[in-house]
């Protein structure tokens, strides 16, 4: 039982990071109906940004290793960098294709994904780089043999704060209202005087920043950074978004958590060889039983 609880805690930690990445997928899908394949690579770029920023801070003499404030600076910096990257990706690669068939857009997203991976490989090398220890690990909570480290607590707490912040943006601000309007009906929104392009840009910036936050948080626990590190988490976060009902923000968060827990459990109790398989098994079952995801509203088509 205690082992189970420990696995649950570990799963929730991973899951909250997946949730943050899944938010980016789900928001972009909600607005553009695009599966943004490059999102996992924006996550990867976010990780490199955080790595370099903390490197520079260390070089500048800031006591990075033991101060949460500097870790925060690194995260915010990475979020800004990834946000900028997301903005340019949308502006240069996706916007010219606003009226093109969706498959064209999808292939373009795949192209951008490959481009980011390869440019990262070229610029940063293919061998893994190691993150400096941003926050020294310590156990802050122990119940029986179930432990929660400060890093894990930070990952969960920051994820929750960011998700709540996103909720406030989407439901309480005018740009959030515009986002909802565009995802509901882009043309009608444009006729109501909403600048659709600005809303789409904003969505990409927001989603990319969240991915970079996830990357920095994961780096606390799992400090290796490689050019292809975004592929698997990206795929899984995407599955998480589908699981929750793609286009649905709460769904993405719930899907991320389910995904993280399921994955950790299968490794803990089953065979690690099927770690990647379980993700897709869940995906397929959900799609076949309830194609719109756990929280998605059913899409009916008129004959």
């Amino acid at each position: 039982m205690q082992e189970f609880l420990q696995q649950l805690v570990n799963g929730l930690v991973w899951g909250s990071a997946y949730a943050l990445i899944a938010l980016g997928y789900t928001m972009v899908y909600g607005i553009l109906r695009l599966i943004n394949f490059a999102h996992g690579d924006v996550y990867m770029m976010g990780a490199y940004s955080a790595l370099f920023i903390s490197g520079w801070l260390t070089a500048a003499g800031a006591p990075v290793a033991h101060s949460p404030v500097w870790a925060m600076v690194a995260m915010l910096g990475a979020m800004a960098a990834a946000g900028l990257l997301g903005f340019f990706i949308e502006r240069l690669a996706y916007r010219p294709l606003r009226t093109a068939p969706r498959l064209t857009l999808l292939i373009t997203a795949i192209g951008v994904s490959l481009f980011l991976q390869n440019i990262a490989q070229l610029a940063f090398g293919s061998e893994p780089r190691s993150f400096p220890e941003l926050i020294a690990s310590s156990t802050i909570l122990q119940v029986g043999s179930v432990t929660l480290s400060n890093q894990q607590a930070i990952i969960i707490a920051v994820s929750v704060i960011l998700a709540l912040a996103l909720q406030v943006i989407v439901h309480r601000t005018s740009i959030g209202r515009a986002m909802r309007a565009v995802s509901y009906d882009r043309e009608a929104a444009a006729l109501m005087g909403i600048s659709v392009n600005r809303v789409i840009s904003f969505t990409f910036v927001l989603g990319s920043a969240l991915a970079a936050a996830a990357a920095t948080l994961i780096a606390l626990n799992n400090p290796l950074v490689t050019p292809t590190m975004g592929v698997q988490p990206g795929l899984k976060a995407f599955v998480a978004a589908v699981l929750g009902g793609i286009g649905n923000i709460y769904g993405a968060m719930a899907g991320g958590l389910v995904m993280g827990v399921a994955e950790v459990m299968i490794v803990g109790y089953g065979s690690s060889g099927y770690r990647d398989g379980i993700v897709f098994a869940i995906l397929i079952i959900v799609l076949l039983v309830r194609p719109t995801g756990l929280f998605g509203s059913p899409v009916t088509e008129r004959a």
């Binding site: 690669a93 064209t104 292939i107 373009t108 192209g111 481009f115 440019i119 490989q121 070229l122």
Partner: peptide, 19 residues
């Protein structure tokens, strides 16, 4: 090492020019 960068850039360019 420039190979795959060029390949992916060509792919994106192609989709933009000839969807």
């Amino acid at each position: 090492e420039y190979r795959m960068v060029i390949y992916s850039a060509l792919l994106v360019l192609f989709m933009l020019v000839r969807p």
